[in-house]
Design a protein around this nucleic acid. Structure first.
Length: 156
DNA sequence: CGGCTTTGACCGGCGC
DNA sequence: GCGCCGGTCAAAGCCG
């Protein structure tokens, strides 16, 4: 971190900054409603019309506080997890965003002929998780879902 | 040699 | 109570 290393991850909810740092083309932003993304709500959603127009991705921050049970939890760790989902046009799923990711699982979800890959930050102490999945309607698009925020400088 | 990838199996939660 | 689904971990193998 010899300088203000550009952190593309959702560490900064600033859409302007985020878009500026993101070296990829965001085709559409996904809004997760409880557990589903309302991409159908996007009227201008056209596979062919998706130019290099960058939309602001939706980021949700919620407090994950574990209620102190009778077990005697001396500390209720309130972890602020940030969820970040967006669709990107890329032939490669593993987009090098400056961090190292270690694949820890692959699963084939229904409603999607493509498998879903689970990545995790290789840095110890960083509990950031990443979920990569191909769009079933647009195999050329990749849906990337970030969960958590890095607590360490980019390795790149 | 170290680190990472891969596949399968396991587990928990939820729904019916 | 059972089935389904998603998510995670582990061991082995491979590559650089």
């Amino acid at each position: 971190m010899t300088d203000n290393n550009p952190k593309p991850p959702p560490d900064t909810p600033d859409s302007d900054d985020f878009c500026n740092q993101w070296p990829f083309e965001l085709s559409e932003y996904l809004q997760f409603d409880d557990n589903q993304w309302m991409q159908d709500d996007i009227p201008s959603f056209s596979s062919e019309n998706v130019s290099n127009q960058v939309h602001q991705a939706s980021n949700g921050s919620y407090f994950e506080g574990s209620s102190s049970r009778d077990t005697g939890e001396r500390e209720n760790r309130q972890v602020v997890r940030e969820r970040f989902a967006f669709k990107t046009i890329s032939e490669i799923e593993v987009l090098d965003d400056g961090y190292r990711w270690r694949k820890y699982g692959k699963k084939m979800v229904k409603n999607n002929p493509n498998p879903r890959n689970y990545y995790r930050c290789s840095v110890d102490g960083c509990a950031v998780k990443k979920r990569v999945e191909r769009d079933k309607d647009d195999p050329r698009c990749v849906i990337t879902t970030y969960e958590g925020n890095h607590t360490h400088p980019s390795s790149s």
